[in-house]
């Protein structure tokens, strides 16, 4: 399981890096989305259920309850998903607007603020 997840995370990060390095703003944003998915999966892997086999929960007898997963990583991922949801909505709107303003999707054309 952990090997599979590691490969998936690696693939997501790799794809995200490739997309972020593109010149097109849309692909850049797709890269950001992919990156946030990769990180969410990474956090998921850090849950004790996946990594060590048992969550840090115990019932009255001191044993981990059967079939329970680590709730904390789920809470973290949920929070991260909500945050990235808001940011992606913002970035999409911003990219759309800057495309209207600059008339271009190419990052090389968006350099007016860097010129002297």
């Amino acid at each position: 399981m952990i090997i599979l997840l590691a490969i998936a995370i690696g693939a997501l990060f790799g794809g995200a890096t490739y997309l972020v390095l593109r010149r097109s703003v849309v692909k850049l944003i797709l890269g950001l989305i992919l990156l946030s998915h990769g990180v969410n999966l990474l956090i998921f892997t850090m849950g004790d259920g996946v990594r060590r086999g048992a969550p840090p929960l115990i019932d009255a007898s001191g044993q981990p309850p059967a079939g329970a997963a680590d709730p904390l990583v789920q809470a973290l991922i949920l929070t991260a998903i909500v945050i990235s949801f808001g940011f992606i909505a913002f970035v999409l709107a911003l990219a759309y607007r800057s495309n209207q303003a600059a008339g271009s999707d190419d990052l090389d054309d968006l350099s007016t603020t860097d010129r002297l």
Binding site: L28, V39, L94, T113
Partner: peptide, 23 residues
């Protein structure tokens, strides 16, 4: 909008690194 786009994207990358570090 142009400056904001760069600001937003690079800061989001930094935040993602922080999130990964947290995890």
């Amino acid at each position: 909008l142009e400056g904001g786009l760069k600001y937003v994207v690079l800061n989001l990358l930094g935040s993602t690194a922080f999130l990964a570090g947290c995890g």
